[in-house]
């Protein structure tokens, strides 16, 4: 199981990784405006990796940080669980979550479900996203972004080793590690120079959204009931409602039958 390490402290925001991805995957350019401090503004079906320049207010003034938006290749991908046509599949050997746009029907379930807001639909091409260059991995190469990164901010290797490197580096610079537990763990581990929320990264829960091979109803309920006061209230409410409906309908009927004698 492989992983990609992104070290924001070494990243200089040069966009070599962003353009290498376009080159290797033969992707088209999107329409944009403005300057290059994070263009295109979000991932699209043609842009699978975007480098962002983020200003963070710190004690001695604003500081510029770099971060990438890209598919995190979750260990338990939600997109794979919800795709009805199996157009997104995780390769359990390498860890890459791979798209098959020729099967995509455009239901946008993955677009809605992803906790990192990664997959994006494009008319005519389907839903596409980073596939960890699975074709390069099969040929014994590293992903295109990793092989071109000039500062060594991107590295590739066994997930356990990458996590070790990330934690060491984070301790060195007083940074934050992102991706080890998020959404149950991902195959993209980031060392960040500022807290993830400040860099615009989503902060999903630190447990998998897809626990079992069923639709995760128990997870749903647990997550939901955490919003109500105390657990178990949610389930009781549903049961109560169900009973109310049935009771109401039957009561109505009973009344009439009595009338009819």
């Amino acid at each position: 199981m492989y992983a990609i390490l992104y070290d924001s402290s070494l990243c200089i925001g040069c966009r070599a990784c962003q353009v290498a991805c376009k080159r290797w995957n033969g992707l088209e350019a999107d329409e944009t405006e403005g300057m290059d401090f994070g263009n295109p503004q979000s991932l699209t079906s043609n842009t699978w990796n975007v480098v962002k320049y983020v200003w963070v207010e710190e004690e001695n003034g604003p500081k510029l940080h770099f971060v990438v938006n890209r598919c995190m290749h979750c260990l338990e991908p939600v997109c794979e669980a919800v795709c009805p046509v199996r157009a997104i599949v995780k390769d359990r050997e390498t860890g890459a979550v791979v798209t098959h746009p020729e099967r995509c029907v455009g239901c946008l379930a993955c677009v809605e479900a992803c906790p990192f807001s990664v997959p994006k639909f494009g008319r005519g091409v389907g839903t596409r996203k980073c596939i960890m260059c699975i074709d390069r991995l099969r040929l014994g190469l590293e992903p295109a972004c990793v092989s071109t990164c000039p500062t060594g901010a991107l590295k590739f290797g066994e997930r356990s080793e990458i996590i070790k490197m990330a934690e060491e580096r984070a301790k060195e610079i007083g940074g934050y590690v992102y991706g080890v537990h998020e959404a149950g763990g991902t195959s993209v581990i980031m060392v960040l120079t500022a807290p993830p929320e400040k860099l615009g990264l989503p902060t999903p829960m630190k447990a998998p959204y897809v626990k079992s091979k069923v639709s995760g109803a128990d997870t749903l309920l647990k997550e939901a009931t955490s919003m109500l006061t105390g657990s178990g209230v949610g389930e009781s409410l549903v049961l109560a409602l169900g009973a109310a409906i049935v009771g109401g309908v039957i009561a109505r009927r009973m009344k009439i039958s009595r009338k009819e004698g």
């Binding site: 962003q18 353009v19 376009k22 088209e28 350019a29 999107d30 944009t32 403005g34 263009n39 842009t47």
Partner: peptide
């Protein structure tokens, strides 16, 4: 195009 997309102006 790939560079124009990142920095069009």
């Amino acid at each position: 195009p790939w560079l124009h997309e990142i920095c069009p102006e």
